[in-house]
Write a protein that binds this DNA or RNA. Structure first.
Lengths: 249, 249
DNA sequence: CGCTAGATTGATAACTGTCAAGGGCGGTGG
DNA sequence: CCACCGCCCTTGACAGTTATCAATCTAGCG
């Protein structure tokens, strides 16, 4: 595996940027976050960061690449229940005294920061950071609910459209978009395991979206050509992804 | 509408019982919970307790009946993303500074305690209660993930089987089961909106489970006749519903 | 005792999965 | 630098599951 340029400020990049969207952070908060870069490591695609049944501790932050939370059925079927994209942090201490009911694994090569329990306690001891992390967690839960809506009440094409809209908003929040396009470095099988479909059907549905002029895909780059129509067809309303920022009162 | 016997100790019943499953509560904690009974009210079926877009505050506790979190599509399709059964509490302050991204409504007549913001702060100020509420919230999130698995990767019959197993465990935790049976006072349409199906298909799938000797339904009473086989077919593992209790260390 | 919401059932259509066979592209090793 | 290999993407034919539409039945309730 190639050695990539050092972790440097990589971690404080997307994570800081994301949390700033949820809480007004100070210099010291940013510095504390930066401290955690030390643990940044490059992890190849298809690696489990945590397995079901593990006793989690500390935190995990993704600064590059896509990871996911998932579960497997006995027949090998996989269901992805969340994407972890750059800037996403998952607090493992949150389940103190318990074990993982699902696994977290990389979908692509990822740069990951494992934050030790003590370090994560330090982060949480900072009010602004704690608030940001807490709100991010609340949004994560809202995303779970929206995914349930997606799986239960939207058609194949609508599910993909909705997912792409959601990812556009989330990627934009960490500065990883360019207009209405962003890198979606995952496989059609991954999309299938996310949307409860088959990779074959994902392929056909993507074709449908493309032929309708709604999306375009060149390599890993996904472009939402007609965002308005895409949002409309998926009934995408980004309200669940945002927190109202405290007004300067 | 009939006036039912007063709220009395109703609230501290299921709520206390449930939270005790997550945290070791003291007398004073129980008393604090009991204080909140004052707000207990009877709400008819089909009533929204909170609507999408509302600015939530305080807490909401269900002591009798079934309620749910849900969202609607423009065409009227409904997706239920969680059940609130007796003992369940939802902390609305948790989304401080934000608005509901979904609604909460009753599926049956419910006895509901609305806990004012100040009162809920009091509850959370008690460490043991705060811990219990926090862990309950974590389990709620785990349930969301399991439901995603259900919708994405299980067949119609398996989804229902899994749901029934989950409810058995949850109802048992608040003492509302008798052996392997409990009251499931909701409609097949509700089940359909929960499992992402049609009420027609729910009806057929229920028939399939019944003919297979796995379940039995008399009026509102649901009996899981062959729990072992039901759990096996749904690949139900209750681990996501439990927290390891702190060992007496 | 009539009403009405919910439960059933049948026939048919639509959507999505399964199986199978290429095709393309990037990465690896010679 | 090129051929080979493997993973992923595409596509076609067909099967299976679930949705729709419509009618009837049933039980709880006023």
């Amino acid at each position: 595996m190639k050695v990539l340029p050092g972790g440097g400020a990589a971690m404080s990049g997307p994570v800081l940027r994301k949390l700033q969207g949820f809480s007004r952070l100070e210099e010291a908060d940013a510095a504390a976050l930066a401290m955690c870069e030390a643990g940044t490591r490059l992890v190849p695609a298809g690696t489990d960061l945590i397995r079901e049944g593990d006793r989690p501790e500390g935190m995990l932050a993704i600064t590059e690449g896509f990871a996911c939370r998932y579960k497997l059925r006995e027949n090998g079927a996989r269901q992805i229940m969340a994407y972890l994209i750059p800037g996403d942090v998952c607090d493992l201490d949150i389940s103190v005294l318990n074990r993982m009911d699902h696994a977290i694994g990389t979908l692509t090569t990822c740069r990951v920061a494992r934050i030790a329990p003590e370090a994560s306690r330090d982060l949480r001891s900072r009010p602004a950071l704690a608030r940001g992390l807490h709100r991010a967690a609340i949004v994560d839960e809202a995303i779970l609910r929206e995914w349930i809506m997606n799986l239960g009440r939207r058609s194949a094409v609508e599910r993909l459209a909705h997912l792409f809209c959601e990812l556009l908003v989330r990627m934009r929040a960490v500065g990883l978009t360019c207009g209405n396009s962003y890198d979606l470095p995952i496989t059609q099988l991954d999309l299938a395991d996310t949307t409860g479909m088959t990779s074959v059907h994902v392929n056909r549905s993507l074709g449908e979206l493309r032929r309708a002029g709604l999306i375009e895909r060149k390599g890993k780059r996904l472009t939402l050509c007609d965002l308005a129509r895409l949002m409309e067809m998926a009934e995408f309303r980004p309200n669940y992804l945002h927190r109202e920022m405290p007004t300067a009162a």
